[in-house]
């Protein structure tokens, strides 16, 4: 009994610490973004609430905040879309292939996902420059899709492998072609997997930094992480209020997706890493 009591107290303390650990920086971000000056802690904690940071971030044309956000959303959505389709085709082929090469492909792709990004980015920069794609959406979407494909493939393989082969046969007999089987049977049946891959792909593309830093030049294609990383003040002093307001707005999409669909994200992450 004493052990049980002791244990539940420990767990309660652990829960509180966990929440404090995870959320304090967020709360700090929100507080700074809402206060008129970033140094409220030194002024005995007196906060002057105002939305002026949000207003200036959203209204200032020269900051291009809205452009960055739009670029990020479009690039991430497009990457997630292509990634799901291509990984879906691949996973279907791998789970249905009778040939011995499938494990080889899976482990090859896994090895690819371990490559450091920096060993790609130098060449990608030259390649994209040579075909004139620098500072376009394509310069990011294509590498993102390739970059996120390995994880997506692993996740989808684990979902597709659970779909019985009889379903493919039934669909063939019912008159489906290969494409129709995929579109009308496999994809809908594996919908939770498809959805969690879409979510993860979107989040990964949204958060990517190095490619975006190297392959974009200005607001025509620059994404929000780069925009915020390079956000410097005009007059020496860093405008923390504006940066935090921008950050708060920028993380809204991923934070919402994470909170609403956390179970799908957790499913995807665990299937992608622990069990193939």
């Amino acid at each position: 009994m004493i052990e049980e009591k002791f244990k539940s107290v420990i767990i309660w303390i652990g829960c509180v610490l966990l929440v404090v650990f995870c959320l304090t920086p967020f709360l700090y971000m929100i507080l700074i973004s809402l206060s008129s000056s970033p140094d409220f802690l030194t002024k005995l904690g007196q906060i002057e609430f105002s939305f002026k940071n949000y207003y200036s971030v959203l209204s200032s044309k020269s900051l291009h905040f809205i452009d960055y956000l739009r670029n990020s959303l479009i690039i991430s959505a497009a990457s997630a879309f292509f990634c799901v389709i291509i990984a879906g085709l691949g996973a279907y082929s791998i789970t249905r292939l009778a040939l011995p090469g499938k494990m080889l492909i899976l482990f090859f792709v896994l090895a690819v996902s371990m490559f450091p990004q920096i060993s790609l980015v130098g060449y990608l920069f030259k390649f994209m420059s040579s075909i004139g794609w620098i500072n376009t959406y394509f310069a990011l979407i294509f590498p993102y899709v390739a970059w996120i494909l390995p994880l997506s493939l692993w996740i989808l393989v684990s979902y597709f492998a659970q779909i019985p082969r009889d379903l493919d046969k039934a669909a063939l007999i019912d008159g489906c072609t290969g494409w129709q089987i995929l579109r009308k049977v496999i994809f809908p049946v594996a919908a939770p997997g498809i959805f969690s891959v879409s979510l993860l792909s979107f989040i990964f593309a949204f958060n990517e930094f190095m490619f975006a830093l190297m392959l974009t030049i200005d607001y025509h294609s620059r994404t929000i992480p780069v925009g915020i990383a390079l956000f410097q003040g005009l007059h020496g002093e860093i405008p923390w209020g504006n940066i935090m307001a921008g950050s708060a707005i920028a993380v809204i999409p991923v934070v919402l997706l994470t909170i609403i669909f956390q179970s799908y994200i957790i499913q995807g992450l665990t299937r992608g890493s622990i069990k193939g």
Binding site: N207, P225, V226, I228, L257, T258
Partner: peptide, 15 residues
Amino acid sequence: VLLPWAIPSAISGRL
């Protein structure tokens, strides 16, 4: 627990 993981590290770097 998921939130710190989900936001871009460039943004958490700024934070």
